[in-house]
C-alpha cells in the first residue's frame, strides 16, 4: 500500500544550497532512488542525481541518506517508518556539481598516482602461472564497484580536507594492498603506501568497512595487512635483520 513520505533533499550548486522539503508518494517495494526519480517527474524536474544500473553494481547513486553514506538504489523505503522524515544529501567529502551530484575526480586522480600491475620482466604475458589460493585473497578487493563511499566516509579527508593531497583513501590503499599481495607484482609498494599515499593516516576506525555495499572487509583484509607489511619494511628491526642475514628480497613480503 502506498503512503505519502516526507523527504528533505539538499539542493544547490557549487556548495551553496539548502535542504528542501517534499511530500511524495511511496509504493511498496520502492527504494530511495525511485522516490528521487518520482520527485524529478512530479515536483522538481531539474533535480540532479547520478544513477545508472539500479542494481547496486555501478556505484553511481552514492548519496547520504539520513546522514549515512548509502546507495540510493539499494536503500529500501521499507527500512524507514512511514512518519519518518528522510533526509537526502550529496556525499560530503567531494565538491558538489549540482544537487546530489558530486565531482568525484579526486578519486580518479588518486587512482592515476598508483603504479599499475608490474610483472617481472622475465615473465611474458601468457606465462603467468598462479594457484587459486595465491590470488583469492586479493580477489575480494576486485568486488569494488567504485562507489567511493569508503573515501567519502573516511574522516581523514571528510573532516580534514587539507589531508587530501597526502591521503589516497581506503579505496586506493586497498588497491595498493591488492597489488602488493599479487604473486607476480614486483613493484615496491610498501614505502610508497606509507610515504606517498598516507597509510599512516588511517586509524582503522573501520567506517570504510561499515559502508561498503559489497561488504569488502577493507580494514581487516586490506588496510591492516598493508600496515603490517609496512611494519616489516620500516619499523621492525628483527625483520630487517633477518632480511640481511638470510638475504631475502624486499624484506620478505614477496615470499
Amino acid at each position: 500500500m502506498g503512503y505519502k513520505a516526507k523527504f528533505r533533499v539538499w539542493r544547490g550548486e557549487g556548495g551553496e544550497g539548502k535542504l528542501e522539503d517534499f511530500t511524495v508518494e511511496v509504493n511498496e517495494g520502492e527504494v530511495v532512488l525511485d522516490i528521487i526519480h518520482r520527485l524529478q517527474a512530479t515536483q522538481a524536474p531539474d533535480l540532479a542525481v547520478r544513477w545508472n544500473c539500479k542494481a547496486g553494481k555501478c556505484g553511481s547513486c552514492s548519496m547520504e541518506i539520513n546522514g549515512k553514506p548509502r546507495l540510493g538504489c539499494m536503500t529500501r523505503m521499507s527500512t524507514f517508518t512511514e512518519d519518518e522524515t528522510i533526509t537526502v544529501t550529496p556525499m560530503r567529502t567531494f565538491p558538489v556539481i549540482k544537487d546530489l551530484v558530486t565531482d568525484v575526480s579526486f578519486n580518479y586522480q588518486k587512482a592515476r598516482e598508483i603504479p599499475s600491475f608490474t610483472p617481472p620482466a622475465s615473465v611474458k604475458p601468457g606465462e603467468y602461472r598462479m594457484q587459486q589460493i595465491d590470488v583469492e585473497r586479493s580477489q575480494e578487493f576486485r568486488k569494488c564497484i567504485e562507489c567511493f563511499m569508503c573515501n567519502n566516509v573516511c574522516h581523514v579527508i571528510r573532516d580534514h580536507e587539507e589531508n587530501k593531497t597526502n591521503f589516497a583513501g581506503p579505496r586506493f590503499l586497498m588497491r595498493i594492498a591488492e597489488l602488493d599481495m599479487h604473486p607476480y607484482d614486483v613493484a615496491d609498494r610498501k614505502d610508497a603506501a606509507q610515504e606517498e599515499h598516507g597509510l599512516g593516516y588511517c586509524n582503522i576506525t573501520k567506517c570504510c568497512t561499515e559502508v561498503c555495499p559489497e561488504h569488502i572487509k577493507i580494514t581487516d583484509n586490506a588496510l591492516i595487512p598493508m600496515k603490517e607489511r609496512v611494519v616489516d619494511r620500516k619499523y621492525d628491526p628483527l625483520v630487517w635483520l633477518g632480511s640481511k642475514i638470510f638475504k631475502r628480497s624486499g624484506s620478505g613480503s614477496k615470499g
Partner: peptide, 9 residues
C-alpha cells in the same frame, strides 16, 4: 566558473 566546493551543511 563557480568554484566547486562541498555541500555547505
Amino acid at each position: 566558473p563557480a568554484r566547486r566546493q562541498r555541500a555547505q551543511i
